[in-house]
Design a protein around this nucleic acid. Structure first.
Lengths: 270, 270
DNA sequence: GAAATAGTGTCTTTAAGACAGTATGTG
DNA sequence: CACATACTGTCTTAAAGACACTATTTC
């Protein structure tokens, strides 16, 4: 059974040596070129591919998400995650950065792919799948964006998962707002991912200004986890992690003893 | 800034009450229905969407992957991950299960979405993005499939990431084989994900038969991590985890003292 | 000085690593 | 019996939680 493909022709076209560490397309053989010329990918129906971005920050011990009011149907005038269709010449990362820039005004943001949502029927326009992304940004930059801002409440513990509730605190009803499409589920997946990364990556690096107090870092962790953490142990763990470096200066304009400011050390490659 | 979208019309069409816990499409208003009728999603070029599946097992202290010899261009007669195009009416999960069944012969397999690979130029036929999945299966079932089997060697430690090397051990050259497209990168991402899940989910459940020895479970962990683990600590940790249950019976046909067999307890919902 | 938060030192508890020693099978 | 592996008990070490105590600021 194993031998069938070993007996085939010796992989024509001089591709045997290439290490293929890069993602470049190999030069096709004559046979393959002829095949590709006659090949029509559009012989089969294709879905539309969208990109949605969950832009998160931490402020006042809570998670906030950047939203966008839809100007067109479907879900016209409803709040949604910033999103749009991937262009045919873009990578997903490029599409996500374009959308973040166009709909929230952020340049140069930390961005990571999250999950692809593709339930048939998730979009009334037809077959639309969306590759959701997560972006993290510090509160000061977040607040400077004109996007509507939603406060997130997570109704499940740990990394259980599920949709989350979003509140717009300005005034009005204090019940969760409705988001377009399956965006509450996407948000839930984003929070779950963030909680999972918290213990293993210096996630605060993206959510805090360059210099910050240990208390501010602890606030970030508590907001993401949705529960309090032990202060003593947290300090010890962070200082022992090797990710932090004391600056020697201290915070100002506080009504209590000013805490020392730290910065993240960029981890050297191993 | 926050108030603009609050002042809009009161979200016409009676959608205010719906809790939208389900993913059903809401009944559109007359306005929206008219919009949708005139809307053409296909006004913009769309990519083709494929699904590739990394089917993994652990055998003899190594990771193995189920492959598939391509019968068509591009990369004709080269080995690749089992994959295919998502059909327009399918969910991703359905497409992945169909592909696993068609190309590897497995029914009822543990399956999870991994990552979406979408570099322009990753497929010479044109714009093809692929939603990669990971499937886990026990060695006995894996061996029963006629698919070509590749042994995986991971050249990076921990969760560093990067492409992995694949060997076909039957005979022939003892250098890594080349896989079609970016499938070595996809495999690398799958191994990274598996290592990440190892400590937090009873992953062995999918990779072992219903009853197994602690040594077999340790072999799974060591194969996935690519390094040995402390036996004493591993036993204590597993027994304390609450995931395992002793069966009272023991393994047979071994030339040493037979070890007790355990089974996984299905975790009760919290 | 009172109040509030930052930061230190130390005791206890818990889990991991190391390792000695016992148990139970094969030959 | 020797030998290989399964399993148990205990000592040591490291990290987390708890908590008392000191330090530095504003009022």
């Amino acid at each position: 059974m194993l031998s069938a493909y070993m007996l085939g022709e010796e992989k024509g076209g001089g591709m045997g040596k290439q290490k293929s560490k890069t993602k470049k397309t190999k030069a096709p053989s004559a046979d393959e070129a002829a095949f590709l010329a006659g090949h029509r990918l559009d012989a089969f129906p294709r879905p539309s591919v969208a990109v949605d971005v969950v832009i998160l920050t931490v402020r006042a011990a809570a998670l906030f998400v950047c939203l966008h009011e839809r100007s067109d149907h479907p879900a016209k005038e409803q709040l949604a995650l910033p999103g749009g269709f991937m262009r045919i010449e873009e990578s997903l990362d490029e599409a996500a950065r374009r959308i973040v820039k166009e709909k929230a005004g952020f340049d140069d943001i930390f961005l990571e792919q999250l999950y692809t949502f593709a339930d048939p029927g998730r979009d009334p326009r037809g077959r639309v799948i969306t590759v959701a992304h997560v972006a993290l940004i510090e509160a000061a930059r977040f607040d400077a964006s004109p996007c509507p801002k939603g406060r997130i409440e997570v109704p499940w513990p740990g990394e259980t998962g599920g949709p989350v509730d979003v509140f717009v605190d300005s005034d009005g009803p204090h019940s969760p707002i409705e988001l377009a499409f399956d965006h509450r589920d996407i948000l839930g997946t984003a929070v779950r991912r963030l909680r999972g990364k918290l213990d293993y990556t210096p996630i605060g690096f993206q959510l805090l200004p360059a210099e910050f107090t240990l208390r501010a870092l602890q606030d970030v962790h508590e907001a993401v986890r949705g529960e309090q953490v032990n202060k003593d142990s947290f300090r010890r763990r962070m200082l022992a992690s090797g990710h932090l470096e004391a600056t020697g200066s201290h915070e100002r304009d506080v009504t209590w003893r000013p805490a020392e400011l730290y910065r993240f050390i960029r981890r050297s490659a191993v």
